[in-house]
Lab assay of single mutants.
Amino acid sequence: MALNTPQITPTKKITVRAIGEELPRGDYQRCPQCDMLFSLPEINSHQSAYCPRCQAKIRDGRDWSLTRLAAMAFTMLLLMPFAWGEPLLHIWLLGIRIDANVMQGIWQMTKQGDAITGSMVFFCVIGAPLILVTSIAYLWFGNRLGMNLRPVLLMLERLKEWVMLDIYLVGIGVASIKVQDYAHIQAGVGLFSFVALVILTTVTLSHLNVEELWERFYPQRPATRRDEKLRVCLGCHFTGYPDQRGRCPRCHIPLRLRRRHSLQKCWAALLASIVLLLPANLLPISIIYLNGGRQEDTILSGIMSLASSNIAVAGIVFIASILVPFTKVIVMFTLLLSIHFKCQQGLRTRILLLRMVTWIGRWSMLDLFVISLTMSLINRDQILAFTMGPAAFYFGAAVILTILAVEWLDSRLLWDAHESGNARFDD
């Protein structure tokens, strides 16, 4: 018995066209964080690309023209004298008006014999932002004059995390709450300039795509075929072959399989920071003279006294001054041990922890910024005066060393310790 099946006739004509040209192939790229070699397709503007294995951002879609970056830099340069030299806060102490600005706080630190601690604050609040705007201006002028731009481009990517104007702005709020127990506070004209400078700096850093600047100024022929001998440069993120001198053909720094002496430098910085954190938390970090009496505060006791007036601000200072430094030390110690013992479990967790400490590390400088600003506000000789204690130097040095330890660690070593050939990683 035959089955009668109805015929289905399409209502619209289906047209099949042959592909007349070869589909576009992607360029081969190595991930600078996990060293995976993959094919990167062509990316349009405002599109980002991520590593298929570790999800690290390979290409950032946010990109401004150099002219727009230069305009932002010149605007920031105009704001800087007002943000640093004009009063941020006014207080009335014992019937006398006192003005506080950024430069005055750094000068008070240096004047009291601790120039190293003052230079830490100076670099993060004044030096690094000033280098940022002058570097962008150098790129703008240098591109037109045919100057060598490689050193500036190499420095810009590392400079971003040292620009800490946003953290200093939080420190202004913390210092205001600490001082309000002794005097009446009012915002100064410099505060508005400083807030504007923070906003412009944040926007500029978020749109400063150094890798795209490398592509514009020093374009290189990408690798179009897969080759395990391809290496990625950690300076400019170019994937290719080393030249005859073993250097990256684009930025001219040595092109090595792994960062040289990464573990040794990381261990040295980490152990030194552990040693410095002990006096930083045991010795007094601030000293207040009130009517001839002397009151010393460690980091913890200062947080407890701050909690009596504002528990939320005390929580912020606790996280930045105690929780973050010790968390960074514990995480980095764990990561280094996992590399030495070739741990194969929990790779995803370790990668996330490394990215976390990379982002939060700079916030530990908050305590030094609060001390710097408070020193310029309260300084009335023996009637009422505020000065920093010996722990300030140890704390600042420990924070900087932990930042350097994270920067010096080559994250690809975590993958080397893991089993080879993993296309995915999980716990």
Results as ranks from 00 to 15, higher is better:
Cys34Gly: 00
Glu21Pro: 08
Ile199Gln: 08
Glu419Trp: 10
Glu86Met: 03
Val357Ala: 04
Tyr218Cys: 08
Leu23Gly: 09
Pro249Phe: 10
Thr201Asn: 08
Pro254Thr: 12
Leu277Ala: 04
Val331Met: 13
Val133Pro: 09
Arg25Val: 08
Phe122Leu: 14
Val174Gly: 14
Ile360Thr: 03
Arg25Trp: 06
Cys31Asp: 01
Phe333Tyr: 10
Gly361Cys: 08
Asp181Ile: 01
Ala70Tyr: 12
Ile383Gln: 02
Gly346Tyr: 15
Asp114Ala: 10
Gly105Glu: 01
Asp60Trp: 06
Arg53Pro: 00
Ile91Trp: 01
Leu270Tyr: 03
Ile91Arg: 00
Leu200Asn: 15
Glu419Leu: 12
Glu211Met: 15
Ser65Met: 04
Ile288Gly: 01
Ser39Ala: 08
Leu270Ala: 11
Leu401Cys: 08
Val210Tyr: 15
Glu21Arg: 08
Leu354Ser: 11
Gln112Cys: 07
Lys111Cys: 03
Leu306Asn: 00
Gly105Trp: 01
Thr204Glu: 07
Lys328Ala: 00
Leu205Gln: 15
Pro222His: 14
Ile8Cys: 08
Ala137Phe: 15
Thr67Glu: 04
Leu384Tyr: 02
Ser273Lys: 05
Gly127Trp: 02
Leu37Asn: 06
Val331Asn: 07
Ser286Val: 07
Met147Ala: 05
Ile91Cys: 03
His46Leu: 07
Lys178Tyr: 01
Ser309Gly: 13
Gln264Glu: 04
Arg260His: 10
Leu66Arg: 03
Pro6Asp: 08
Tyr241Val: 13
Thr224Tyr: 11
Ala115Gly: 04
Cys343His: 15
Arg348Trp: 13
Gly293Glu: 04
Ala391Met: 01
Leu154Met: 04
Thr358Met: 13
Lys328Glu: 00
Met375Gly: 08
Arg216Glu: 13
Glu407Met: 14
Pro249His: 12
Gln244Leu: 12
Ile400His: 09
Thr201Pro: 06
Ile319Glu: 11
Arg260Glu: 09
Asn291Met: 15
Tyr50Ser: 08
Asn143Asp: 15
Pro279Phe: 08
Gln244Asp: 12
Trp363Ala: 03
Asp227Val: 15
Tyr182Ser: 11
Cys31Pro: 00
Ser65Lys: 08
Ala397Pro: 01
Lys178Gln: 08
Ser119Trp: 02
Thr298Lys: 09
Gly26Met: 09
Ala423Tyr: 15
Phe74Trp: 04
Leu208Asn: 07
Lys265Ala: 05
Ile199Thr: 14
Phe38Thr: 05
Leu290Pro: 02
Ser119Met: 01
Ser48Gly: 10
Glu21Thr: 07
Gly246His: 12
Gln186Ile: 13
Val331Lys: 11
Phe386Leu: 02
Leu79Phe: 13
His90Asn: 06
Ile14Arg: 10
Val324Glu: 01
Thr15Ala: 09
Arg259Ser: 14
Ala405Ser: 10
Leu37Ile: 08
Gly113Arg: 07
Ala175Gly: 05
Asn44Gln: 07
Leu23Met: 07
Gln29Leu: 06
Tyr182Asn: 07
Lys13Thr: 04
Val232Cys: 15
Pro129Glu: 09
Gly118Asn: 03
Pro129His: 05
Thr202Asn: 15
Asn422Cys: 09
Thr110Gly: 13
Leu347Asn: 12
Met109Ala: 11
Trp214Arg: 03
Val195Ile: 14
Phe425His: 11
Arg226Trp: 14
Phe386Trp: 01
Trp415Cys: 07
Arg294Met: 04
Thr110Asp: 15
Ala280Pro: 02
Ser39Gly: 12
Thr349Phe: 14
Gly188Tyr: 07
Asn310Tyr: 03
Val331Gln: 07
Lys12Pro: 05
Ala398Val: 10
Pro222Cys: 14
Pro41His: 07
Ser376Thr: 14
Gln244Thr: 14
Leu335Asn: 05
Ile287Asp: 04
Val179Cys: 11
Arg53Tyr: 06
Trp140Ser: 11
Met332Ser: 06
